[in-house]
């Protein structure tokens, strides 16, 4: 195992060293990332400054939701967020360089540009998570503890798959990076609000097609003991691993097809 991972460790270590080499600009970037996290939080707070309940969630519930989605998305963004700028890699020939190395291309792409600065956003969301957990009254059981711990993790895994989907699509739509944004950043945006405020088609879209609801909303319902709206009952909150497996299958197939398209092996 260690043998297999050694190249990636070396790649990641070299990336981290280069980011930390320019300390001042790294700190500024980190502050910028905190700023983005605060902006997203401000949006929720401004909305709740005029109302008390959105969907079935009060401010405390909404903050819990925000925190799960925020941690998941920012971790995914840190690890694989750069893959949706695939056209840049295509133009600069970096992808060809990857193809000339004895490692899988996707693994090289993922390890090529880990962005530590995005942890600034994770930090904001983590602070909100601590506050939100203390604000809500949750009837803790061991199962719920496991759920609360695993939710940010599976949230990150699901968002990471969305980024890989976005990358795969761009083998065909080189100019259409923003199409992909609609599902990655759009998915994250939709995930930070109770899915129940959406119309049924959108709720189905963001649950079963782009599984954003699994990253935060559905587990939050389970933790807070809500029933959940029609078609997307709270019990689905336990199924984030299934959603993650599903979307990763789609992502990897899409990536494989995209790479085959690029190398002309047919698609």
């Amino acid at each position: 195992m260690g043998e297999v991972l050694a190249p990636y460790r070396a790649l990641l270590a070299s990336r981290l060293r280069s980011q930390l080499a320019y300390r001042r600009s790294f700190v500024l970037d980190l502050i910028g990332a905190v700023g983005i996290g605060v902006l997203e939080l401000a949006e929720v707070l401004v909305i709740f400054s005029s109302i008390t309940v959105l969907g079935e969630l009060d401010l405390a519930g909404a903050l819990l939701l925000f925190a799960f989605a925020g941690i998941g998305f920012s971790l995914a963004d840190m690890a694989v967020g750069h893959v949706d700028s695939l056209p840049r890699y295509l133009r600069s020939g970096t992808l060809d360089a990857f193809l000339l190395r004895p490692l899988p291309v996707l693994a090289q792409l993922i390890t090529s540009d880990l962005q530590l600065r995005r942890l600034g956003r994770t930090a904001v969301a983590a602070v909100v998570l601590v506050i939100a957990l203390s604000m809500n009254t949750i009837a803790w059981t061991p199962a719920l503890v496991v759920l609360a711990v695993l939710t940010p993790l599976f949230s990150a895994i699901i968002f990471a798959a969305l980024f890989v989907c976005a990358a795969g699509v761009q083998f065909w739509l080189v100019e259409g990076g923003e199409f992909a944004n609609a599902f990655t950043y759009g998915g994250s945006y939709a995930a930070s609000y109770p899915t129940s405020i959406f119309s049924l088609p959108m709720r189905v879209l963001f649950t079963f097609v782009v599984p954003a609801a699994f990253t935060a909303y559905l587990p939050t319902l389970v933790l807070l003991g809500h029933a959940g709206p029609a078609w997307t009952p709270a019990v689905l909150g336990w199924f984030a691993p299934v959603a993650a497996a599903g979307i990763w299958t789609v992502a990897l197939l899409g990536w494989r097809a995209g790479l085959r398209h690029y190398t002309g092996a047919g698609s």
Partner: peptide
């Protein structure tokens, strides 16, 4: 396209609020 998808989400949030 992206503006429109975000519009769908944003309109839903606004109307929900």
């Amino acid at each position: 396209f992206t503006n429109t998808v975000f519009g769908l989400i944003k309109a839903a949030i606004t109307m929900g609020a």
